[in-house]
C-alpha cells in the first residue's frame, strides 16, 4: 500500500466520500489485519478490532491532518486499539483463569501456510516488523521510529525473522 495513495484516499474520506472509504478499506485491510494480529494473536479479537479501526477512521477523520502521513495515522489507531484490547483481555483472563484454563487455546489461529509459519516461528515483534516491511512497505528506519527501537535492531530482527520463516517453510523462495 503506497503512502501517497493512502494520503489521497484519506483526503477524500475527510471530504465525506464514502466510496473513497470503501477503497481505503480494500487497499489497507490486509495490512491492518496482519498488523492487529501481530498484537492480538487471535482471529476473533482481530476481526472485532478491524471493524472498530475502520469505524474510528470514519468518526475521527477530522483528526487526520491533510498532507501528513496517512499510513502512520491509520496504524496508530490500530496500535492503540490493539493495546486496549490486550489490557481488557488481561483483566478478563485473570477473572476466569481458575475456571477455564483452555479458553484461548488454539481458538483463534488463522489458516494459511505463511500465516501459520509466522505464528509458529516468529516472536510477536518479529511478526510486526515483517508485516510493516513486507505488507506496508515501511523502511527499516521508519519501523524503528514507529516501534521506538534502533534501526540496527529492526534490520537484524527482520533478517532473523526471514531466516526463521525460510527454515519453517523449508524453501528458499521467501
Amino acid at each position: 500500500m503506497d503512502g501517497r495513495q493512502t494520503d489521497r484516499l484519506l483526503h477524500a474520506v475527510a471530504t465525506g466520500d464514502n466510496k473513497a472509504f470503501e477503497q481505503l478499506y480494500l487497499k489497507t485491510k490486509n495490512g491492518v489485519y496482519a498488523f492487529l494480529y501481530s498484537y492480538l494473536n487471535n482471529a476473533q479479537d482481530t476481526e472485532d478490532a478491524m471493524q472498530t479501526v475502520y469505524l474510528k477512521v470514519k468518526t475521527n477523520i477530522s483528526s487526520y491532518k491533510i498532507g501528513t502521513n496517512g499510513r502512520a495515522w491509520l496504524l496508530q489507531i490500530a496500535k492503540n486499539l490493539a493495546l486496549d484490547v490486550i489490557k481488557k483481555n488481561a483483566r478478563f483472563a485473570l477473572q476466569i483463569q481458575n475456571s477455564k484454563d483452555d479458553l484461548f487455546e488454539e481458538s483463534g489461529f488463522i489458516k494459511g501456510e505463511i500465516l501459520e509459519a509466522m505464528q509458529k516461528a516468529l516472536t510477536e515483534e518479529e511478526r510486526r516488523i515483517v508485516v510493516l516491511h513486507v505488507l506496508w512497505g515501511y523502511k527499516h528506519r521508519e519501523i524503528a521510529k514507529f516501534l521506538s527501537c534502533p534501526t540496527g535492531t529492526v534490520t537484524s530482527k527482520y533478517k532473523r525473522a526471514i531466516e526463521k520463516l525460510r527454515r519453517e517453510l523449508k524453501e528458499d523462495s521467501v
Binding site: N30, A34, G112, E113, I114, V134
Partner: peptide, 13 residues
C-alpha cells in the same frame, strides 16, 4: 512472500 501473504490474507480478512 508478499504475494503469498496477501493471497492468504484475502481468504482470512
Amino acid at each position: 512472500l508478499k504475494e503469498k501473504l496477501l493471497k492468504e490474507l484475502d481468504c482470512v480478512v
